[in-house]
Simulated scan of single mutants.
Amino acid sequence: MISLPIKRVSPVHDGQQIPLALTTSELPSFSNFVVGLNDEVVMALRNFARAEADSLIFLYGQAGTGVSHLLQASSHLAAELGKKSLYLSLAEPGLNSKILKDLDFIDHLYLDDVQSIAGDENWEEDLFHLFNQFRDGNKCLLIAAKQLPEQLSVTLPDLKSRLSGMVRYHLKKLTDKEKSVAIIIKAQALGLKLSSEVSNFILTRGPRDLRELMQCIHKLDQASMISKRAITIPFVKQTLDW
């Protein structure tokens, strides 16, 4: 389902309209995720949010495939259903492993970018105890990384064993046709009007990584709002320096 754009009101600063960073329709959700060949994964994460499936899941996928998007979408759904839900990226600068010791009040926990803490003794030890806590308490724990558990540089054998024993899902990359759909969805969420010619140009000339591609759309949106110009191919070339 394609989410409908909502009207945005931007504050005025130094005579220019400054775009708001995020709108409701841009928040990660299942409705604005392009599924591609990932129907099984999406269904699993929907059911996980409803506590109707496996309670210990390991999701892996390369950068730009939408792993973080899906984790946050599932977390939002769990919260809407009245669950105490938390999404946490372990790649966030300044995080301390002690944060994992105070999460006993959480029903659904989503830990992203676990590869970022692999090899750190304190993180691995605290994650191991957290895993046991959620497993023994029949709570829902979803761990995500860019690689399979066996490929992570985890040095604590018991933790590697726990991760390897989780139900696992692989998030596959989108095809170019599916990326084109993702561009359209993002543009509509921002209230942008993109012709098929401009959309195809962005897809052809833009980065292959989907996350970077979406950042290009955001940059075009901001530049268009400030300059009050329509998004044409010359405008794209000028704004993105292509």
Results as ranks from 00 to 15, higher is better:
D136H: 02
A144G: 03
I217N: 00
Q151R: 11
D221K: 03
L192S: 09
L171V: 09
T175R: 13
I185V: 12
E124P: 04
L156S: 05
L194C: 04
L156V: 09
G119W: 06
L109N: 09
L190N: 10
T204Q: 12
D126P: 00
F131E: 06
L159K: 03
A182L: 15
M214K: 05
K160Q: 12
A182S: 13
R211T: 12
R162A: 08
Q147T: 15
E150D: 03
S164Y: 04
T155Q: 15
Q215P: 01
E124T: 08
K177M: 03
I185Y: 14
F201W: 11
K173M: 13
K219W: 00
K177P: 00
D158A: 04
R205K: 15
H218M: 04
V181Q: 10
I217G: 02
P157Y: 07
N138L: 07
A145T: 05
K177A: 14
L213H: 08
Q188S: 13
Q115T: 10
S180F: 05
L190T: 08
D113N: 09
Q188R: 14
A182W: 03
H170K: 13
L130G: 07
D221S: 12
H170Y: 14
Q115K: 06
A182P: 01
L171F: 04
E124Q: 07
E212P: 01
L111G: 13
K172I: 02
L142V: 12
L163M: 14
L111V: 04
W123I: 12
K139A: 06
L190Q: 13
V154A: 00
I183L: 15
G191F: 03
L213T: 02
A118M: 03
I183E: 00
H108L: 06
S199R: 15
N200Q: 14
D136F: 00
P149A: 10
